[in-house]
Design a protein around this nucleic acid. Structure first.
Length: 202
DNA sequence: TAGTTGATCGTCT
DNA sequence: GACGATCAACTAA
């Protein structure tokens, strides 16, 4: 799959807000059972560790958020609400607990596999609904607890270069589902893209 | 169509 | 013992 070129480690070592914006338009690639799942990233949120009251790492390192302190280029997967997983890309150098939450992707390849993973049965659910939310994305891509701490420079899961979204098309807003730090507009998404979460269908 | 709530459990206080 | 970086179903208007 030379079409999908893995991003180098250096991509993840830059400032988190920069990485967050540049992740838009890139491809999330997941190898699962010999099949390839690919989605274009259209929505992310930045979590700036100790500077950010909404971050898991705000109060310091714990067993749960340990991966956020690792070197950029790892995957931090956490379990929440008793039933959901969310995937983050760890950024910056080792010891800095910053990460980017991947909130939504546009399915590109392996759509049938994603359908199976999400157990789609209803015909009126179209594919734009497969991964337009952090927990749905993880379900569709088969990302669970075992993928916590995985190396994004490996072959199982990685981010591949793709189009870069022009600044004029990057929208920002407050982050979703959190109650603190609502003055930080660290959610970024592709303006007008129908695969972004929290958009009503019509 | 907008607002509210139940499901469900690992992690932290 | 309480709550959460969520989702989807349900209720009211």
């Amino acid at each position: 799959m030379s079409r999908f070129k893995k991003l180098p480690c250096s991509f993840y070592l830059r400032p988190t807000l920069t990485v967050a914006k540049e992740l838009l338009g890139k491809y999330l690639v997941r190898k699962l059972g010999g099949k390839l799942l690919v989605g274009k990233i259209v929505e992310v949120e930045a979590y700036l560790g100790q500077k950010d009251p909404a971050s898991h790492a705000y109060r310091g390192k714990t067993k749960r958020n340990e991966v956020m302190f690792w070197k950029g280029g790892h995957l931090y997967v956490y379990f929440t609400y008793g039933m959901h997983f969310c995937a983050n890309v760890v950024t910056r150098e080792k010891g800095v607990s910053e990460a980017v939450l991947i909130r939504a992707v546009e399915p590109i390849e392996g759509i049938e596999i994603m359908r199976e993973n999400r157990e789609f049965t209803r015909d009126d659910w179209d594919y734009w609904n497969l991964a337009n939310g952090p927990a749905k994305l993880c379900e569709a891509f088969g990302i669970q607890r075992e993928q916590n701490g995985i190396d994004l420079l490996g072959d199982e899961i990685f981010i591949a270069s793709g189009g870069t979204v022009p600044k004029s098309l990057i929208g920002s807003s407050t982050r979703i589902g959190i109650k603190s730090a609502t003055d930080k507009r660290w959610r970024f998404f592709v303006e007008g893209n129908k695969f972004v979460s929290r958009k009503r269908s019509s």
